[in-house]
Design a protein around this nucleic acid. Structure first.
Length: 257
DNA sequence: GTTCTAGAAC
DNA sequence: GTTCTAGAAC
């Protein structure tokens, strides 16, 4: 979010009791500054390069302080914002499970099924709306790479996979989901998660390619965002389930371990 | 995108 | 009383 540059050795005055603070040392000559981060930050959030030692302090809201809380939301949409996270992850060699001259594949940081990858082009394309006929070959290549990911998966014979895009993604940088259809994951937590992969909110890669070939554009139907609020329905047998926990219990009958 | 949590739903 | 969802996050 909002950072203030502080040099090693510089004094840091604690201002108030309202906000968390984070101090990051981009250069760390002796590598001795690391202390554990807050427990609620996920492990996959911490894949910084080894020489970027971090200091993160404070745990409870009322005990937290900030060095950078007073400038409002000036950096809301810039590099450090959560919506730009894929641009960072895709550059991290530790996250890359495949790459070539056109695309890179990473594992989804919060997988919604037993297998869940993202195929991203190196070229910066914000979203489906930015796609045009010039991207046709690229998008077809993304689909081929997605198919390769499925083929190399040891569970590909027992699990069905789908490859497609969210109609209205939260994260910037166009990304092709490759996801097994068990939806057996602790990261699948709410109706939006479910409906984003099991309704027409999920646009098949082949449909995107077809739209590009026939229209030169990708169009999203009106009312697509409302699909996220549909009742929970099993994608295998169309049974309606009242809650997420009930749905998860039901899915076990289709996908025993 | 996730986390957190108030209060709805049961 | 507990489970679960849905909206704010400055």
């Amino acid at each position: 979010g909002n950072e203030v540059k502080i040099k090693p050795g510089q004094q840091l005055h604690i201002v108030n009791q309202l906000y968390p603070y984070t101090v990051q040392f981009k250069e760390d000559p002796n590598g001795s500054h690391s202390i554990p981060k807050r427990p609620r930050e996920s492990a996959s959030e911490d894949r910084e390069s080894k020489r970027e030692a971090q200091v993160v302090k404070a745990a409870k809201q009322t005990e937290e302080v900030s060095v950078s809380a007073s400038h409002g939301e000036a950096k809301r949409e810039s590099a450090g914002h959560w919506s730009q996270g894929l641009k960072t992850s895709m550059q991290d060699p530790n996250m890359q499970v495949y790459k070539d001259d056109k695309v890179v594949v990473i594992k989804d940081k919060y997988p919604k099924a037993r297998h869940h990858w993202l195929v991203l082009p190196w070229q910066s394309i914000p979203s489906l709306k930015a796609l045009c006929e010039e991207h046709c070959d690229l998008v077809k290549h993304m689909q081929r790479v997605a198919d390769q990911m499925v083929q190399q998966c040891p569970d590909s014979s027992s699990l069905r996979f789908r490859t497609g895009y969210h109609a209205i993604p939260s994260m910037s940088h166009v990304h092709l989901h490759v996801i097994s259809q068990d939806f057996d994951s602790p990261c699948l937590k709410n109706k939006k998660h479910w409906n984003s992969f099991t309704t027409d909110y999920f646009i098949e890669s082949h449909d995107v390619i077809q739209m590009l070939e026939t229209n030169g554009r990708v169009t999203v139907k009106e009312g697509t965002s409302e699909l996220l609020k549909l009742p929970l329905r099993c994608h295998m047998c169309c049974k309606d389930l009242p809650t997420i926990p009930a749905l998860k219990e039901h899915l076990k009958s289709h996908f025993p371990r």
